[in-house]
Computed example of a mutant assay.
Amino acid sequence: MSLAGSRPRPDTPARGRPRSEAVERAILEGVMRLLEDGVPLAELSIERIARTAGVGKAAIYRRWSGKEELLVDVVRAAEPPEPELPGTSMRDDLLALLENLRQRALASRSSALLHNAHTQMKTSPRIWTAYHENVIAPRRRQVLDVLRRGQRDGELRADVDVELANDLFVGPLLVRAVLRPEAELPEGLAEQIVDMVLAGLRPVSSTAS
């Protein structure tokens, strides 16, 4: 798998010399080649990654603190990019977020790299923790922020538990992605989920968008 460009990491402070995008791309693609060749995560040493990418180990350590942080970026780069929220309404933002989740689920099904990486990450507590803290948790906070704005703007009932509401929105897609891999993920599924859940969570006086 090739990359058009490395995914920026705005929350990661710069270390050492300025990054070379070509070097960073070579490193990410080197890890992807190893994963696609079936190399287990446990065998992905910094030395092996450096040899595959044709760079020195120092080039990797200038960009990532260790293997865990690097692997998180590799998986993030292989997934569909994060969506830009329209900001026009809670419903529109939820649609964008759930459609992105649907696209990620489809990518995981069709990409051996992503499927294998996700499966192996769960067997490595350090890598899974890094992925959860840097990818999963921010995505959950984004949905919660959208729901809280919806409450503030009167699009969501004030008595709704936004933590539980988050699970109601993303749960159906996660069930199909993880527990029911044979289930379809058709176009329009995100809209169907959002509208079905919102039907029970909107203020009584609110009208459908």
Rank of each mutant, 00 (worst) to 15 (best):
R62P: 01
R62W: 08
R62Q: 13
W64A: 00
S65W: 04
S65F: 03
S65V: 10
G66S: 09
G66K: 07
K67D: 00
K67P: 01
E68I: 02
E69D: 05
L70I: 01
L70T: 00
V72M: 00
V72Q: 00
D73V: 00
V74Y: 07
V74G: 10
R76P: 00
A77Y: 01
A77S: 14
A77D: 03
P80I: 00
P80V: 00
P80W: 01
P81G: 11
E82V: 04
E84L: 11
E84Q: 11
L85E: 05
L85Q: 06
P86R: 10
G87M: 04
T88Y: 03
M90D: 06
M90H: 09
D92F: 02
D93M: 15
L95G: 02
A96V: 01
A96G: 02
L97D: 11
E99F: 02
R102F: 01
A105L: 10
A105I: 07
L106W: 10
A107S: 14
A107G: 10
A107I: 09
S108G: 14
S108M: 15
S111V: 12
A112K: 11
A112Y: 09
L113T: 02
L114N: 05
L114I: 13
L114Q: 04
N116W: 08
N116Y: 05
H118F: 15
H118R: 13
T119F: 07
T123Q: 12
T123W: 13
P125C: 11
I127A: 06
W128P: 02
T129D: 11
H132W: 10
H132Y: 15
I136K: 07
A137L: 13
P138N: 09
R141K: 10
R141T: 04
R141W: 05
R141S: 11
V143D: 03
L144K: 08
L144I: 13
D145S: 14
V146I: 12
R152P: 01
R152E: 15
G154D: 09
G154R: 09
G154K: 15
G154Y: 09
L156I: 13
R157H: 14
D159Y: 03
D159S: 09
D159M: 04
V160E: 12
V162I: 14
V162D: 08
E163Y: 15
E163I: 14
L164T: 14
L164M: 11
N166Y: 12
F169S: 09
F169H: 09
G171Y: 04
P172S: 07
V175G: 03
V175A: 12
V175I: 14
V175H: 12
A177F: 01
A177E: 13
V178Q: 13
R180W: 06
E182G: 15
E187V: 15
E187A: 15
G188E: 10
G188R: 07
A190T: 06
E191P: 06
Q192W: 08
Q192H: 11
I193G: 06
I193H: 05
V194D: 04
D195H: 02
M196D: 15
M196E: 13
V197W: 08
L198Q: 07
A199L: 05
A199G: 04
A199R: 11
